[in-house]
Design a protein around this nucleic acid. Structure first.
Lengths: 357, 357
DNA sequence: TTGAAAGCGTTACCAT
DNA sequence: ATGGTAACGCTTTCAA
C-alpha cells in the first residue's frame, strides 16, 4: 500500500499543497509555521510516504550517487578501497554505485555510460589503461571523472582529475629496500605491463637497479605472456606460476623479488613453498598495496603501502564537486607510497661473500 | 552538448514521432519499416542520444538494478561474493547497487529504504540478524528480499527467500575433522554469537564435540566480549587476540581450533606465530568460507567452503524474479558446505599418548 | 506502420 | 508562509 503514496496524497492528508510538502522534504523550513510542519510530518508518518527518487531526479536533474568502477571487488585491495570510498561518500551524504570492470575496456565503457544514463554525474574510475578514449564522449557530455591508480596521461581530457600514488617512487622504494639488504639478483614479477601504473612500478624498479650499478638486462623479469590478460583475483595464481618458472633451474634464480602487487606476491610465496623454499630466508619477497592479509601472512609480507583512506576521500570530494567548487581540473594528485618492511625480506644468504660488481 | 539530447530531438532529426523512437529503443521493431528504423538509428548516432533512466523509470516503474547489502567488501569473502552476484546479474541483463552495512542494523535499514526509494524492487541482504523487523515495512510494500548467509527464521515475513549453507553441518564438519585427526581439546573462536549463522556453526561444533564423547563445558570457547561488536575486517585482529589469550598459560591450551571464518582463522594463525607456535604441527586450525587466501597461506588453511558462485546465482534469480515466475516464497535454500582439508590441520603431537576420557 | 497526447511524481517558479 | 501549475524525458494507450 505505502509503496504508492505520493506527495499529493500527503498534501491532501495534511490539508496543504504539494509544494509545502516538497519544501519540507527539501529542508526549506525557514518560513514554515510549526503547526503546518507538524501536520505534514504526521501525514508522512501515517501514510508511510517515501519520495520517489526517479521523479525527484528527473525534475531536479540531481543525484547524490557516485559511480565507482574497480577492476574487481574480489581482490582485497579493491574491496578495501571500495569500502573507504563508501565511507567518504557517506560523510558527504552520498551513495556509491559499484561496478567490476575486470579490467575490460568494453566493460569500463559500458558501465560509465550506464552510470551516466542513470543520472550519475561523478565517477571514480579505477583503470590503468593508457588512454581514456573509450569514455571520452561521456566526459565531453559533462561527466566528472576521477581516475584512481592511474596518473594523468598527456592525452587525457582536461577535466579529468587523477589520483594515484607515485608508482615509480613505489617501485623504486621496493627495489631499493632489497638492494639495501644486499640483494644483487632481483626479479620483477607482474602481469601484463600494458597498464600505466604497472609500467611505472617497473620503471622505478629499473631506476633502482641501474642506480645500484646493476644491469636490468641481466635481471629475471617475468611479465607473463603478452597476450594473456590476468584479472586481479587471478594475480595470485599468476605469481605462483612465476615462482615455479623462475626456480625451475633453467636459469640462475633471484634472491629477491619485487611483485607488482600483494596478491601476486602472496601467490609467489605459495610457489616458493611448492618449490621447498622458505620466504624471508631463502628468498626475499616484497609486494605492493599492503592489503590486510599482508600483515597476516607467514611470514608477514613486506610491501609498499598506498594510503587508501586518504585517496578515497580525495577521490570522493573531486567526483562530488560541482563544477564551481572543484579544484582546477586536469589535476593529477600524486601521493607518496610508504615502505612497510616486514619479515618476508631479509639479507640474502650469501650476501657478505658475493663478489662485488 | 549530447547530454541534453532528448527523444524529441531524435524524433525531429529523423522526421518521425517520439513514439517511434521509443519503440525502437524498446526493441519493438517487429512492424517497423527498415527505412524508418535506419533513419532513427542514424539520428541517435549523430546526436549522441542516450536515454534518461530517471524518466524511463518514472514512467515505466521498472528498473533492472538489484540491491546488494553486504557487511563489508573489505572482507575478501564478501568481496568475492559481491563479484559473483554481479556476474550473475549481468547474465540476466541487470545491474547491482552495492552497500556495506558494517553489520549495523541501522545502516541495513537505511540502505534498504534508500534502495527502495531508488525504485529498486529486489534486494539481496547479507545479514545475520535474528529478526528482519527493521526492514519489515519495506517488505510489506512489495520488496523482493533475499537473505544470504542467514537461514530463514520463524518470524520472517512470508515473502522472504533465504539462501545459505547449512552452517550447523559446516560447524560439525570442521569439528569432526579435528576429532578424526585425534584432537580432544578443541577451541571454538568467534566474535559475538548473536548472529544466526555463527550460532549455528557453534551448534554444529557442540554436536560434534558431544558426539565424540567429549564435554563442551570443558572446551575453551572464545567468543569475545558480549558488548563489543567486531566488523568483518576486524575479525583478523580478533582471532589474533584470541590466540594470545588462549595460549597465555592461564589454562590448558587447545590442540585444535575451529574459527568461525577464515579471516578469524588467519588472525589466529598470526597470533600463534606471535606465541612461537607453528600452525599445523603445534596447533591445528580450521576456518570457514574458503576465501582465496586460504589456499595461499602458509600453511594452506583447512576450511569449510561455501559454494558462493552457485549461491550468488540463486540469489540473483530470486531477487530478480517478478512475483509471477518466482519460486514459492518463504523458501529457505540450504546448500551443503564442503570440507577442504589442507595443511593447517594435522594429528596432534601427543595424540597417541593422551589419556582417554 | 506511425503519431498525438496523457501522464508518471517531483520540483521550482510565480502568485498570493 | 503557502498554493497553483508547468515542466522534467519518457512510455503507453489509442487513434489514424
Amino acid at each position: 500500500m505505502a509503496g504508492r503514496v505520493t506527495i499529493q496524497d500527503v498534501a491532501a492528508a495534511a490539508g496543504v499543497s504539494p509544494s509545502s510538502v516538497s519544501n519540507l522534504l527539501n529542508n526549506r523550513v525557514d518560513k514554515m509555521v510549526p503547526a503546518t510542519r507538524q501536520r505534514i510530518e504526521r501525514a508522512i508518518a501515517e501514510l508511510g510516504y517515501r519520495p520517489n527518487r526517479a521523479a525527484r531526479q528527473l525534475r531536479s536533474g540531481r543525484t547524490q550517487t557516485l559511480g565507482l568502477v574497480v577492476p574487481s571487488v574480489g581482490n582485497p585491495f579493491w574491496g578495501a578501497f571500495a569500502r573507504e570510498v563508501e565511507v567518504a561518500a557517506l560523510k558527504l551524504g552520498g551513495n556509491v554505485l559499484l561496478c567490476n570492470s575486470e579490467r575490460d575496456p568494453g566493460r569500463e565503457r559500458r558501465y560509465v555510460e550506464e552510470l551516466w544514463e542513470d543520472g550519475i554525474r561523478g565517477i571514480i574510475l579505477c583503470t590503468s589503461l593508457p588512454s581514456l578514449d573509450h569514455v571520452a564522449d561521456v566526459i565531453e557530455d559533462g561527466l566528472r571523472l576521477v581516475t584512481f591508480d592511474r596518473p594523468a596521461q598527456a592525452n587525457d581530457p582536461r577535466s579529468v582529475v587523477s589520483i594515484s600514488i607515485d608508482n615509480q617512487v613505489g617501485g623504486h622504494l621496493a627495489t631499493t629496500h632489497l638492494i639495501d639488504l644486499g640483494h644483487e639478483r632481483i626479479a620483477f614479477v607482474s602481469g601484463s605491463l600494458r597498464s600505466v601504473n604497472r609500467s611505472a612500478r617497473y620503471r622505478g624498479y629499473c631506476d633502482a637497479i641501474e642506480a645500484a650499478g646493476l644491469s636490468v638486462s641481466e635481471m629475471p623479469v617475468w611479465t607473463g605472456s603478452e597476450t594473456g590478460e590476468f584479472g586481479d583475483v587471478e594475480a595470485a595464481g599468476f605469481g605462483r606460476a612465476a615462482a615455479a618458472s623462475l626456480f625451475s633451474g633453467e636459469q640462475e634464480p633471484p634472491t629477491g623479488v619485487v611483485a607488482v602487487n600483494d596478491m601476486t606476491a602472496l601467490g609467489f610465496c605459495r610457489g616458493l613453498r611448492d618449490a621447498g623454499l622458505t620466504v624471508g630466508t631463502d628468498v626475499s619477497v616484497i609486494g605492493f598495496d599492503d592489503i590486510i592479509l599482508a600483515d597476516l601472512y607467514d611470514p608477514p609480507l613486506s610491501t609498499v603501502r598506498q594510503p587508501i583512506a586518504e585517496m578515497a576521500q580525495l577521490a570522493v570530494v573531486e567526483a562530488s564537486a560541482s563544477p564551481g567548487n572543484a579544484a582546477e581540473p586536469g589535476r593529477s594528485v600524486l601521493l607518496r607510497p610508504q615502505l612497510i618492511a616486514r619479515r618476508s625480506t631479509a639479507a640474502p644468504v650469501g650476501a657478505v661473500t658475493s663478489s662485488p660488481a
